[in-house]
């Protein structure tokens, strides 16, 4: 009986279809991806900026989105708040301490679908040498063949983090920062 179950399972396996998700490289070369942040300035206005340099990839199977995964590595020194002097300050030990902690990484630990095209991606964000679990509210934007022979999938995501939780010093770091992520991947 046990043997026949195994046999049935072995026979059923190919029928399950292509279970392996495809791997996509995030299209940073073509700049179809961005990591943007929005932080309060004294409670008077919102300051926006981004990280210009990062790399990443994700595994995605439209039939099994929860089986996917994503990894991103961010070059902290590439921070760009549209003001060179402020960017130097943000790189300094007062904020990101970029010389000691040049990279931030995000590695997903789980994906939970919340609707037809929405999901929460939970993962470990490491910056300033500290790792914390964060949730990214993700929306599937679209996917398919591009006009140049490639195949792409794209997502939008938002998350809120408190930099002080990662050990960033100073009063400013205690205020929440909104992250807005736009990601398009090219199938490998």
């Amino acid at each position: 009986m046990f043997k026949s179950t195994l046999l049935a399972a072995a026979l059923a396996l190919p029928l399950a279809g292509p279970a392996l998700a495809d791997t996509y490289m995030i299209d940073t070369a073509g700049a179809h991806a961005s990591i943007n942040f929005k932080a309060s300035h004294l409670g008077f206005s919102m300051l926006t900026g981004r990280f210009d340099t990062f790399t990443g990839s994700f595994d995605f199977d439209p039939a099994k989105p929860e089986a996917g995964s994503v990894t991103v590595e961010i070059d902290i020194a590439s921070i760009n708040s549209n003001h060179a002097e402020r960017d130097n300050h943000l790189r300094s030990a007062d904020f990101f301490d970029a010389s000691n902690h040049p990279k931030a990484t995000f590695v997903s630990t789980g994906i939970k679908a919340t609707g037809d095209s929405t999901a929460v991606i939970t993962g470990d964000l490491t910056m300033l040498g500290t790792t914390k679990s964060i949730d990214i509210e993700t929306t599937y934007v679209g996917g398919g063949d591009d006009p140049w022979g490639g195949h792409r999938q794209g997502f939008s995501g938002t998350a809120t983090i408190v930099p002080a939780d990662f050990g960033m010093p100073g009063g400013i770091a205690k205020a929440p920062v909104e992250l807005s992520l736009e990601v398009e991947g090219i199938r490998q």
């Binding site: 210009d52 020194a77 590439s78 760009n80 549209n82 060179a84 002097e85 960017d87 130097n88």
Partner: peptide, 29 residues
């Protein structure tokens, strides 16, 4: 170059603007 890397001029005592000669993101590093 720190102050003008993003293309901003340097304002001397609020009176005279010294323009940026080279605008190069990252030069400030």
């Amino acid at each position: 170059f720190i102050s003008t890397a993003d293309g901003r001029p340097i304002l001397v005592f609020g009176l005279i603007e010294v323009p940026a000669l080279i605008e190069a993101k990252g030069l400030e590093k």
